[in-house]
Amino acid sequence: MKIAQEIVDYVSALSRLSLPEGEKAAMQRELEKILQYMDVLEGLDTAGVEPMSHVIPLENIMREDRVMPSQDRGELLAGAPVPDQEAFLTPKSVE
């Protein structure tokens, strides 16, 4: 699989990563090399094979609808990069 620079730009934008111009070409080459290697999977006959997302066949793992105390707000906010007593802060994100 050839990886065009546009694809690297596209997945970078999707991932909220922005590679410096100097690193882009190297990253493109590495991704291409890795994906080319992964193409060995093309040779594997998977017709009719159900994709397996969970290896352990657990089912219906659920909890009761019973309220437990929430965590102390101060503890949740303690690690926020911008300190505030009540909320997490971001640059303007709503109209």
């Binding site: 596209y10 994906l35 992964m38 998977t46 997302s53 290896v55």
Partner: peptide, 21 residues
């Protein structure tokens, strides 16, 4: 991000889950 993105999911991610099976 690439292997999950539109157009590549089946060829990579889904294929890998099948290989896993």
């Amino acid at each position: 991000t690439f292997v999950l993105s539109a157009g590549y999911y089946d060829a990579y991610y889904k294929k890998a889950l099948q290989a896993k099976a």
